[in-house]
Design a protein around this nucleic acid. Structure first.
Length: 570
RNA sequence: GUGCCUGUAGCUCAGCUGGAUAGAGCGUCAGCCUCCGGAGCUGAAGGCCGGGCGUUCGAAUCGCCCCAGGCACACCA
């Protein structure tokens, strides 16, 4: 429902409730914000309100009676917007709008254009979204790919509804993981130079990409690193590995169309001394104690089952310290809210993170942490490949895009991947059926949506070639739209702004994906049933062109928020 | 063992703050182009919404208890 119409109807219903209460027709009740629900069938009007249903509890009357009292006090002459109201089902107030609303919707879309669906709901609040943040120890896999698609779309959505949102990637370029990387590269390096009996260390990385990396070192510098002792060589290979692998990750994400505003380095953070400050703060607040040669954080003070080590007996910080420092740093940079999208392997960390932030006194709802669930790939032989960074078994985002590019047009490979990642709710484990995506690419839902857009464009091209010029239409002409398919489309178009808002506020871009799919379906149905360019009826042609323009605008806006292209032809 | 996620049509999944006959794609079956793009459309078949109890006028949705699958539970990140 577009805002103006919604507010007007709200007013009318509120007035009706007030007069009903004044006249004693309705017991005195506190009315909540009047809810609306889109109607599923034309017999239910253009919009419905379940307000009577929600009042029933406190009013201690049956919902139907309440609905009848309310509707009795609606004076239709008050507003030319509402044509008819009806009480239906358990107590829904079904509202039928007069034809002027068709005009309102189409005109609103046309005037807003690329901004239709946007709002200033967020009031410029600064939101930082951190996502992907994969360790720089390997290529971006499809689990991170999913997070990349979701995070990117989420930032777009937040922007659309008035937040000042930014994308950030936290590079874990310090700590034990990257030391393991260096040691793993070292093993590969020495293996390539003929040393036998070597083993990838515990916690190291087994992926074959490190053989390639080591080979490139051998190609460039031969065996010159053998001169160094193991520790120095590990350090050299660590830094070199981070640089190369991070470069690979950046390239992949660019290719995937995700552009981060900020790349934060854990190493730089550690050098800054901020982790030390965190320890000071925690110590002052009494959250720390010493035991077994280590320093522990009282996670149990925050309801956790056990305390956590923050300084190991070797004097090194565990990841809790830089993580806490990093989040405080976000806060100090002035973000009103931080949203972390974490991978499924960090589930246990979610609560810890919130507790650390709480211990820093950053406020309860300042940090939001969401798990973007795992992705399994069904490969072209039908084998299920479970993603696990630690086992060294993974399917890279690059490989996925390559495979899609080969099967479908190059220019749509990224679109298909992003769409698939954005089809499911974040909490749902996703089976990416490559076999299906590849062999049935032509029936892919992303093409279904894109095709609807291309079809709109095609109609306008045809319009031009027939020498038809689009004119301003007036309210009178808009009344020519009376067929069910068109009205259904109008109703759906009018929902768009709310879908955008809900997708952003619930952090669930998949809602928009589903909406667009439905819109495409309604449009294909409309198209099949009606001729837009009707030589025998110039007025109808004009109003239908405006409708097609509305569909085109919404499809384009929506796809753009998802980071998916809206092709003019396919 | 503890925590998180999931369980809806043969398969993969939607189902918004509880609300009207539980939806879609794929698959199966049957149809639609003298006409703006058939990557489309129409129809049919297919469901004790994992199970139970509870809250409610009303539960796929909320609460509790089970069952099943996945993941996480380091002086790793």
């Amino acid at each position: 429902m577009i805002r103006e119409v919604r507010n007007r109807i709200k007013e009318i219903l509120q007035n009706a409730i007030d007069t009903a209460v004044q006249s004693g027709d309705l017991p005195h009740v506190n009315t909540p914000d009047i809810p609306f629900s889109p109607t599923k069938a034309p017999e239910h009007g253009d919009i419905a309100s379940p307000i009577a249903l929600s009042l029933a509890k406190t009013a201690k009357t049956s919902p139907r009676k309440i609905a009848e009292s309310i509707t009795r006090h609606i004076h239709l002459e008050e507003s030319s917007l509402i044509r008819k109201v009806e009480v239906a089902g358990p107590g829904f107030i079904n509202i039928y709008l007069s034809k002027i609303w068709v005009y309102n919707v189409l005109k609103t879309i046309k005037e807003a254009g690329a901004n239709f669906g946007h709002s200033n709901h967020g009031a410029g609040l600064r939101v930082q979204v951190e996502f992907v943040s994969a360790n720089p120890t390997g290529p971006i896999n499809i689990v991170s790919g999913r997070a990349a698609a979701v995070g990117d779309a989420l930032v777009n959505l937040l922007h659309a509804v008035g937040y000042e949102a930014v994308r950030e990637y936290y590079v874990n370029d310090a700590g034990g993981q990257v030391d393991n990387l260096g040691a793993s590269i070292d093993v590969r390096y020495r293996e390539l130079l003929g040393q036998g009996g070597l083993k990838i260390p515990d916690g190291g990385y087994h992926g074959t990409y490190l053989i390639d990396l080591a080979q490139s070192i051998v190609d460039e510098d031969g065996d010159k690193f053998l001169r160094f002792d193991d520790t120095d060589r590990g350090t050299i290979f660590r830094d070199l590995g981070i640089e190369r692998l991070l470069g690979t990750q950046k390239a992949t994400l660019e290719r995937f169309g995700v552009h981060f505003d900020t790349w934060s380095s854990e190493k730089a953070l550690r050098v800054s001394g901020k982790p030390d400050e965190i320890i000071e703060v925690f110590r002052q607040r009494g959250y720390l104690y010493e035991a077994d040669g280590a320093t522990w954080f009282r996670m149990t003070d925050f309801g956790d089952t056990k305390d956590c080590v923050v300084i190991k007996s070797d004097g090194e910080y565990t990841y809790f310290v830089p993580d806490a420092a990093y989040h405080r740093d976000k806060f100090e940079r002035g973000f009103d809210k931080a949203i972390d999208l974490l991978g499924p392997d960090h589930q246990g960390h979610v609560e810890h993170l919130k507790h650390l932030v709480e211990a820093l006194g950053l406020g309860d709802d300042w940090l939001e942490v969401w798990i973007i669930q795992q992705v399994n790939l069904i490969d072209s032989e039908g084998n299920r490949i479970e993603m696990s960074k630690r086992s060294g078994q993974f399917y890279t985002l690059d490989a996925l895009i390559d495979e899609l590019a080969e099967a479908v047009d190059d220019r749509f490979a990224v679109d298909v991947a992003r769409y698939f990642f954005l089809m499911r709710s974040n909490t749902s484990h996703l089976d990416f059926d490559l076999q299906l995506a590849v062999t049935q690419a032509n029936e892919n839902p992303v093409f279904y949506v894109q095709y609807a857009h291309a079809r709109c464009c095609s109609i306008f091209r045809e319009m031009e070639s027939q020498g038809i010029v689009q004119t301003e239409i007036g309210e009178a002409q808009s009344e020519l739209i009376s067929d069910p398919e068109s009205l259904q489309l109008i109703r759906h178009l009018a929902e768009y702004p709310e879908v955008v808002l809900n997708s952003a506020e619930k952090r669930e871009p998949h809602r928009l994906t589903h909406y667009l799919y439905e819109l495409a379906g309604l449009f294909h149905g409309f198209y099949n049933e009606h001729r837009v360019l009707d030589p025998s009826n110039a007025n109808l042609t004009q109003v239908r062109l405006m409708l097609v323009g509305g569909v085109q605008t919404v499809l384009r806006n929506g796809l753009s928020l998802l980071g998916i292209s809206a092709p003019e032809s396919m």
